[in-house]
C-alpha cells in the first residue's frame, strides 16, 4: 500500500496524544496549577488534534470531512471520528475544571481514558477490518496500535508529570515495561506478516481470474502501458525496498534508545532523558508506520 505521509503522521501523533490523554484521565500524577494543567492539556489534546487534522490532508475533499461523522453504524472510519470528537470535548471539560479549580474529576477522567483507547482501537480497525490486506487483517493489529499508544502516552506523561513511582515501581521502569510489551507485540505482528501472503483467504491469480483450474495463470499484458491509481495506491513496491533497514531503525529509535534513556532517567535529570526518549520513539514509530503501509500487499496486486 502507498505510505501517505499524512496518514503516517496521523496514526503516530494522534496515537501518542490519545495515549497521554489516557494517562492523564487515569489520574497520572501531574503538576498542578493553571499553567501546568493547560500545558498538559495542550500536549495531549494538541498531538491528538494535529494527527486528526493531518489525516484530512490525504482526503480529496477535506472541506467535506464533517460528513465522515454520519456513518458510524457501519464504518470504522466514521466511528473513529465520532469517538475522537466526543473524547476531545470531554477532555476539554476535564482540563478546564482542572485548570480553574485544581480538581481532576476522576469519573470524567476515566471517560476520557476510555474514549481515548476506543479512538485508537477504531483507528486500528480501519486497517484490521480489510480482508483485502492480509498483513493488516489480524487481531494483532489493534493490539499493536493500543500498545504503542499506551507506551508513547506513558512516556510523555512520565516526561511532563511528577510521578516518581507508578504501581510501586519507578516511573522509567514502568515506561520500559510498556515499551517492551509494545515491541514484543510488534515483532510477533511482523513475524506473522512475513509469512502470511494471501494464505488467509487462499487467493492467488488463479482465484482472482477464476482460470486456475485450467493451468498456471500469468499476467501477459497489463490493461494499460503506464501507471494508474490502482498500481500507485495498492501495488506500491518502492517503499518495501529498504524494509529490513527500516525495521532496524524502528527497533533502535523506537525501542532501544528510549530504553537506554529511561535507564539514565532512573538516576539523573529524568525530564531531559525522557524528552530524548520521547523524540526518538516518535521517529522510530514513523519508520514502523511507514512499513505498516509499504509492506502491506493488497489483493488487487494479484491482477497486476
Amino acid at each position: 500500500m502507498h505510505p501517505a505521509i499524512s496518514v503516517i503522521f496521523f496514526t503516530v501523533t494522534s496515537g501518542a496524544g490519545f495515549g497521554l490523554m489516557t494517562m492523564i484521565g487515569l489520574g497520572f500524577p501531574m503538576h498542578n496549577g493553571i499553567v501546568a494543567a493547560f500545558l498538559s492539556y495542550l500536549l495531549g489534546g494538541g498531538l491528538a488534534v494535529a494527527g486528526l487534522l493531518s489525516s484530512t490532508f490525504h482526503l480529496g475533499h477535506p472541506e467535506r470531512a464533517w460528513r465522515a461523522l454520519s456513518q458510524w453504524r457501519s464504518s470504522w472510519l466514521s466511528r473513529e471520528g465520532v469517538i475522537a470528537i466526543i473524547t476531545l470535548l470531554l477532555f476539554a471539560v476535564y482540563a478546564l475544571i482542572w485548570m480553574f479549580t485544581g480538581q481532576r474529576i476522576a469519573p470524567l477522567g476515566w471517560a476520557v481514558a476510555a474514549g481515548s483507547l476506543l479512538t485508537v482501537y477504531a483507528t486500528s480497525m480501519i486497517y484490521a477490518q480489510l480482508k483485502t490486506v492480509p498483513n493488516w487483517h489480524s487481531k494483532l493489529t489493534p493490539f499493536c496500535y493500543l500498545a504503542f499508544s499506551i507506551a508513547s502516552g506513558l512516556l510523555l506523561a512520565g516526561m511532563i508529570g511528577k510521578a516518581t513511582l507508578i504501581l510501586g515501581l519507578p516511573t522509567p521502569t514502568i515506561i520500559v515495561i510498556a515499551l517492551g510489551i509494545a515491541w514484543i507485540i510488534k515483532s510477533v505482528w511482523w513475524r506473522r506478516a512475513d509469512t502470511i501472503g494471501f494464505s488467509q483467504t487462499g487467493s492467488n491469480t488463479g482465484t482472482a481470474t477464476g482460470l486456475g483450474h485450467l493451468g498456471k495463470v500469468r499476467l501477459l499484458e497489463k490493461p494499460h502501458s503506464g501507471e494508474n491509481y490502482l498500481t500507485h495506491e495498492m501495488v506500491h513496491q518502492i517503499g518495501r525496498k529498504h524494509a529490513l533497514k527500516l525495521r532496524a531503525i524502528a527497533y533502535i529509535l523506537g525501542g532501544i534508545i528510549p530504553v537506554i534513556m529511561c535507564t539514565f532517567a532512573l538516576f539523573i535529570t529524568p525530564v531531559f532523558f525522557l524528552l530524548i526518549a520521547a523524540i526518538s520513539m516518535i521517529i522510530g514509530l514513523f519508520a514502523e508506520r511507514w512499513l505498516f503501509f509499504a509492506e502491506a500487499k493488497h489483493a488487487v496486486s494479484l491482477y497486476y
Binding site: M1, H58, L59, G60, H61, P62, R64, A65, R67, A68, S75, L77, I126, Q129, L130, K131, T132, V133, S203, A208, N228, Y229, L230, E233, M234, H298, A299, V300, Y303
Partner: peptide
C-alpha cells in the same frame, strides 16, 4: 457530492473496481 476522497472503499475492494 458527498465523497471526501478518503480511498478507503478502493482499499476494501479486492477487485480494483474503484479508481480515484
Amino acid at each position: 457530492s458527498m465523497c471526501i476522497g478518503c480511498s478507503l472503499c478502493a482499499w476494501a475492494c479486492p477487485y480494483g473496481a474503484r479508481e480515484m
